Simulated assay, not measured.
Amino acid sequence: MSHIYVLLTILFTVYGQIIIKWQVSNAGVFPQDNSEKIYFIIKLLSNPWVISSFMAAFLAAISWMAAMTKLPLSYAYPFTSSSFVLVLFLSAIFFREPITLSKSAGLLLIILGIIIGSTR
């Protein structure tokens, strides 16, 4: 069950990142004028999707706390790097962001780091 908590932490975190990017992209360019900036931020903070991403962050924290009751931090934490892997692929799918050679190399290093860092 402890690995499920780590997985939930990762999934809630990735959900939050994808939703924030989606909603910020839909909101348009960040305004220059200070009063418009405040309105822009308030509008985003009242957006139900953005609120759901904050809830996901809260649930990720709760899942992480549950995982920490069962697993050593030095074992569990490397798995959180897999959120980078998921975000890279999902940003390519949903936002058409390019997966470059350097990103692919970095991704490979992250995966190797997870494998090496999670050995007990």
Rank of each mutant, 00 (worst) to 15 (best):
M1T: 12
H3Q: 11
Y5K: 03
V6Q: 05
L8I: 11
T9H: 04
I10E: 08
I10K: 06
T13C: 07
T13G: 12
Y15R: 01
G16S: 15
Q17C: 01
I19H: 02
I20Q: 13
K21D: 00
K21Y: 01
W22Q: 08
Q23C: 10
Q23S: 06
S25E: 13
A27T: 06
G28Y: 08
G28T: 11
V29Y: 10
V29N: 14
F30G: 06
P31D: 03
P31G: 07
Q32N: 14
N34R: 08
S35M: 11
S35I: 13
I38C: 00
Y39D: 02
Y39P: 00
I42P: 02
I42F: 13
K43F: 13
K43V: 08
L45F: 15
S46M: 11
N47V: 08
P48T: 09
P48N: 11
W49E: 03
W49T: 01
V50Q: 05
V50I: 15
V50K: 03
S52A: 08
S52L: 07
S52D: 07
S53T: 07
F54Q: 12
M55L: 15
A56M: 09
A57H: 12
F58C: 02
F58N: 00
F58R: 00
L59H: 07
L59Q: 04
A60W: 10
A60S: 15
A61S: 14
S63I: 09
M65H: 09
M68G: 01
M68V: 01
T69L: 12
P72S: 09
L73V: 14
S74G: 14
Y75G: 02
P78E: 00
P78N: 02
F79Y: 15
F79P: 06
F79W: 13
F79I: 05
S81V: 05
S82C: 12
S83C: 06
S83A: 15
S83D: 04
V85H: 00
V85Y: 03
L88G: 03
F89I: 14
F89Y: 13
S91A: 06
S91Y: 00
A92T: 05
A92W: 11
I93T: 09
I93W: 13
F95Y: 03
F95K: 01
P98C: 03
P98L: 00
T100R: 07
A105I: 15
A105T: 10
G106L: 08
G106S: 08
L107N: 09
L108G: 12
L109C: 14
L112T: 14
L112C: 14
I115Q: 00
I115R: 03
I116S: 13
S118K: 10
